[in-house]
Design a protein around this nucleic acid. Structure first.
Length: 547
RNA sequence: GGCCCUGUGGUCAAGCGGUUAAGACGGAGCCCUCUCAAGGCUCAAUCCCGGGUUCGAUUCCCGGCAGGGUCACCA
């Protein structure tokens, strides 16, 4: 069979160039020794999730700690996945978490000589190589319809055979010249399949940068490389793009491990050197008794927007991811609590090989620790940004008076005290913590544990002596002085020594006041709260709480 | 089902032939204390199972078992 003629009939494009020319068009990158070129290659659905951030972080770290390049490529070979504005959304989401690209789709950069970075715009490159594979007898046209393929698959399933297009099931593999041209003349749609030379009984050892030594079974599937619309499949595009964009390290989820044999064979057939592969373990979640990979349909916490709308501190999300990305990160962070996470020496071989259960508790802990390290001004800015996007109209109004918010935050965060408080775990909850400082969101649930007479006596008694000019000690002395009037113990020690002799203690008096002023039995320092509220408001709350 | 990956407390995990098997989150308790939070201290809790190899296996080998992933003209 005249393969050159076949190739020309199958891929008649007249805008193709000699594939070897691409080696000059996309020359090896001029980078220092050991520099890694990594990439994030999402499909343009615009849905960027925690798993993407997870691997993007590894990519970004590997590139930027080695003096390499991290770029963005859009895998838009499947039109069904395209969503408008998706690329901008990916860039924005990642930027929110402090990840930036050096190069790629929609990125301003003088490095953009390895583009275009949208696969649809690279059709000629793929087609030039597909054409060459046909000429070399390593690819062929397949005219099988979807129905035919489904039927074969069912038969294979019924007989418990391996499904797919291989061996004797690769019907179009050995079509005669006449049959091919007849099909072509009849205008039958076709795909280009790779003619696999592999044997599933042969296994090779392979070194994965994360998994270590693994075994790879040879591929024997004649996979589709060019779809009937002329666009390549992922596998084919991956081999060509990562070669010509000079990727040195492919970091991807371990769900790709099963197609590694295909990729290895493709690189070999194309005459390309394979990049180093690093397959990351998946982020899991428990469901009943078992665990499973986080899924985009079932798990809202997979979406990055979830963390933004909940107001987790973005850097905390990164730091949490880093703890599961590199097992020695936490130790480093303990030693360098103030250091920028970028100073951590990230190592790919320190990545976990087993699937990690996503731990929201741990994230919350990291988030509140990070937030507690902010100044009141920084915290205010963070909360304000959240409120303006996700808060209620009242929340937005509250943030107009930043000075007041900062006063509140200084208290809530325990700034100036011996120990910082860690009350704010995420913005959505932190903003609610301030509700009682505003009359329009003050919504007391007066749950007093004492009889009305006692409550009223405490409320009136304190109102009569309250002076905003008092310092903390004087303030507390006044609270204590109320004790005898209601039959409570003024000193905790006394109360503990003889609880039966009293109806309550100073702490109970404080509780009554606290419930009246804040609506809750728990709060930071009451004296300071009263000071922030001011005398008038304090007194009116005291009065309003009377039974 | 085939192929591949993984298996240390509830969770994330150190560990690389001999350890009292780190640490963190979570849990319990105590202290501190006007409550809460924070902080300090303490406690409970782990090497999937069975065979080897070895003086000695969590660690090495084999076999099970369990969990996960994947088997498209989707990436």
């Amino acid at each position: 069979m005249d393969l050159k003629k076949l190739a020309a009939a199958l891929i008649p494009d007249d805008d193709l160039i000699d594939p070897d020319k691409y080696e000059q068009i996309y020359p090896p990158r001029d980078l220092p020794q050991g520099a890694q070129v990594t990439r994030l290659a999402p499909s343009p659905t615009g849905f960027i999730h925690l798993g993407n951030l997870f691997s993007a972080l590894a990519d970004e770290r590997m590139a930027h700690t080695t003096g390499g390049v991290f770029y963005l490529r859009i895998e838009d070979t499947d039109l069904k996945r395209k969503v408008d504005g998706a690329v901008e959304s990916v860039i924005r989401s990642l930027k929110y978490f402090g990840i930036r690209f050096d190069e790629g789709a929609e990125i301003e950069s003088k490095l953009n000589i390895y583009g275009p970075y949208y696969q649809r715009q690279r059709a000629q490159i793929y087609r030039a190589y597909a054409k060459r594979l046909i000429e070399q007898g390593l690819a062929y046209p397949c005219f099988c319809t979807e129905e035919e393929l489904n039927k074969v698959r069912e038969e294979q399933n019924a007989q418990k055979l391996i499904t797919g297009y291989y061996g004797k099931y690769a019907k179009c593999r050995n079509l005669s010249e006449e049959q091919i041209y007849a099909n072509l003349a009849a205008g039958k749609p076709f795909v280009i399949r790779f003619k696999s030379q592999g044997d599933v009984n042969v296994k090779h050892p392979f070194k994965d940068a994360i998994k270590g030594e693994i075994t790879v079974t040879e591929n024997d599937q004649d996979i589709v490389i060019i779809k009937s619309d002329g666009i390549p499949t992922y596998h084919f595009a991956h081999a060509i793009d990562d070669h010509f964009m000079r990727t040195t390290l492919v970091i991807r989820g371990e769900e790709w491990l099963s197609s590694l044999p295909i990729h290895l064979e493709l690189f070999k057939a194309l005459g390309f050197k394979t990049p180093v592969y690093a397959h990351t373990s998946s982020l899991m979640k428990t469901e009943g008794e078992t665990r499973r990979k986080l899924s985009k349909r079932k798990d809202p916490e997979l979406s990055l927007d979830y963390y933004r709308s909940q107001g987790y501190y973005p850097e905390a999300v990164v730091r949490y991811l880093l703890t599961i990305l590199n097992s020695n990160y936490e130790e480093w962070e303990r030693k360098n609590p103030q250091a920028d996470w970028r100073e951590f020496k990230f190592k790919i071989d320190k990545m976990s090989r087993s699937g990690t259960l996503f731990d929201l508790d741990k994230l919350s802990d990291i988030s509140k620790t990070r937030i507690s390290m902010l100044s009141a001004e920084e915290c205010c800015a963070f909360l304000k940004e959240w409120a303006l996007e996700f808060g209620s109209e009242t929340d937005k109004l509250h943030f107009r008076d930043e000075e007041y918010i900062i006063k509140i935050l200084t208290l809530i965060m325990g700034i100036g005290g011996k120990k910082r408080r860690k009350d704010i775990e995420r913005a959505s909850q932190g903003v609610r913590l301030m509700d009682y400082f505003f009359d329009d969101t003050f919504n007391p649930q007066y749950a007093f544990r004492f009889d009305d007479k006692t409550v009223n006596a405490v409320l009136d008694g304190f109102a009569a002596v309250y002076d905003p000019a008092d310092d903390n000690q004087t303030w507390f002395a006044k609270v204590k002085s109320l004790a005898p009037q209601v039959g409570f113990a003024a000193e905790m020690a006394e109360y503990k020594a003889n609880p039966g002799a009293y109806k309550g203690s100073v702490s109970d008096i404080a509780e009554i006041l606290r419930v009246a002023v804040t609506g809750s039995p728990n709060s930071p320092d009451l004296c300071t709260i009263m000071g922030i509220l001011g005398k008038e408001r304090t007194l009116s709350r005291l009065a309003a709480a009377k039974r």
